[in-house]
């Protein structure tokens, strides 16, 4: 495990951990980065270097979580990043999983029942995920943004209710993985199944990181602002 620094070349980060690629994209960074360092790129793209490094490092290592530092960043910056992440889920990951699961089921010869059950489970999960993210996009984030920009408290809403209802959306992904790894008869195309499980595992990890930023950073920062405004 290592912690990336502002003088590291961005290309080095990618070589060390290519799972960071979608994270870079969320910051609007595209490849063709030559030998530029993290600091160069951040200056160029007008991203706060500290925020970028904190996000990249927490993503790179599950156990690294510079809470104090993360709490010092702007809620606007954070919601922007979280929104980009939601977009990535819905424009890329979920369609990819849909496609792979459909192919997986089509490749199965006999154990139709097992995979059908998995399909039902997956569809239900997808619905929950949709509701979860819709709620954040339509209710929670706009509330935070309005609070920061206009210093106005919405009498009908407080972030504390989000704190209570914010559900765990990565638990079911692990169930889904276990159902396939442990309990479905292996009567399907192995390569498709591997792709599906790998995509699922990456998604699970990404969601954990995402939820951690929501729960441990966005919420406390917003509560703090509410407190200051006398709530």
């Amino acid at each position: 495990m290592e912690i990336f620094k502002k003088n590291d070349k961005l290309s080095y980060l990618i070589h060390r951990n290519y799972h960071l690629l979608p994270v870079l994209n969320r910051f609007g960074i595209k490849l063709g980065i030559k030998n530029k360092t993290v600091e160069d790129i951040c200056r160029e793209r007008k991203i706060s270097t500290g925020f970028f490094l904190a996000i990249v490092n927490t993503y790179h290592n599950e156990e690294y979580f510079p809470r104090e530092e993360l709490l010092s960043f702007s809620p606007l910056e954070i919601t922007h990043y979280l929104r980009k992440t939601h977009q990535y889920y819905f424009q890329h990951i979920v369609p990819k999983l849909d496609d792979l699961l459909a192919k997986l089921i089509a490749s199965s010869h006999h154990d139709f029942k097992g995979l059908q059950m998995v399909d039902v489970f997956y569809k239900k999960y997808k619905k929950e995920l949709n509701q979860h993210i819709d709620h954040e996009e339509e209710r929670v984030f706009p509330y935070v943004i309005n609070l920061v920009k206009n210093h106005k408290i919405d009498p009908k809403y407080t972030i504390r209710s989000f704190e209570q209802e914010h559900s765990n959306v990565d638990e079911k992904l692990n169930d889904l993985k276990n159902l396939i790894i442990k309990y479905i008869s292996p009567d399907y195309d192995e390569n498709i199944c591997n792709d599906f499980l790998i995509t699922l595992s990456l998604f699970e990890k990404d969601l954990e990181d995402h939820a951690r930023i929501e729960d441990k950073i966005l919420m406390p920062i917003t509560i703090e602002i509410e407190n200051k405004l006398g709530r």
Partner: peptide, 11 residues
């Protein structure tokens, strides 16, 4: 089983 959710257990 390694499965936590109710719907997962149902499957």
């Amino acid at each position: 089983t390694g499965i936590k959710s109710i719907s997962g257990l149902t499957v």
